[in-house]
């Protein structure tokens, strides 16, 4: 796994995620990276990567909406000007 620090350089994070607990894709996976978003500007996140942790918080066992809300809140918060993604290239199945 790889720790990727995404700086909040744009108004949007700019990724689309698929997956979550009780679905075919047990952990959230990046399916789109939007041009001009913070993730695209960072250049280290890739389509297909599976998100294991956000700011040290595990995505394991979280339903899709819970995981999406957590990522959105991590990007919205003013406490930090970055979001830490722990990602892996492997399709981690539980």
């Amino acid at each position: 796994s790889t720790l990727v620090r995404v700086a909040k350089t744009a108004s949007t994070l700019g990724i689309a995620i698929e997956g979550g607990a009780n679905t075919r894709q047990p952990l959230p996976r990046i399916v789109t990276i939007q041009r001009g978003g913070s993730a695209h500007n960072c250049g280290k996140l890739k389509v297909g990567q599976v998100i294991l942790e956000i700011n040290g918080i595990s995505m394991r066992g979280r339903e899709h909406r819970d995981a999406a809300r957590l990522i959105a809140e991590a990007f919205k918060t003013k406490e930090r000007d970055y979001v830490d993604f722990l990602v892996t290239e492997l399709n981690v199945s539980l």
């Binding site: 990724i15 995620i17 698929e18 009780n22 075919r24 789109t32």
Partner: peptide, 16 residues
């Protein structure tokens, strides 16, 4: 394991 997984519903997609 694969059959069990395929029996699960596909996930929705959220843009962030």
């Amino acid at each position: 394991v694969r059959e069990k997984r395929l029996a699960l519903p596909p996930s929705e997609i959220t843009m962030l």
